[in-house]
Amino acid sequence: MNKSENNFKDLRQLLKLKQHEVPPPGYFNNFSDQVIARLQSGEGRGAETISERLSVQAPWLAWLLQLFEAKPGVIGGFATSLVLLLVIGVIVSERPDSMPNNILTATTDSPSVTSLAAVAPSDLGAGGGIVASTNPVTSLQPVSTLFGQPSGSPLFQSASFSTSGN
């Protein structure tokens, strides 16, 4: 490092000239008064820009934004990687083998819809919960009731509504 310092000895001597540049005489006499007067008048309160706030509170984010500004290629790469991640996520989520197994097993083991429909309401008893819905049944998991788990099956009954006349 000393060698480097020696290489720039003349330059550093020249840079000393900057130390001799001084503001007009008396400039600092009322500088702090001006700052305090502006503060007391409430100037600048809430006028802080987002970038200024970021540079103090989250310098890493400010740095990232500055990098994007300085090198547009970086933002392109960043956006591409985000899109790739999104596409991979969509592909993985739509793979058939990613479906939960219990849905398939529950469908095969459960009684058919017609047999469910054939069960009389009286057979369900007081402990059985009747779930009536106009939506198709997608899950045959036991449904807990206020009185605990219902005994026996079927637990669900599909209900059909028909209007007479029309």
Partner: peptide, 22 residues
């Protein structure tokens, strides 16, 4: 909009050497 140089600049030996010799 440069500030003026102070009085000492003209007497800074480093600066004088730089101007007169180099």
């Amino acid at each position: 909009s440069l500030n003026d140089l102070d009085f000492n600049a003209e007497h800074d030996p480093d600066l004088m050497a730089l101007i007169s010799d180099k």
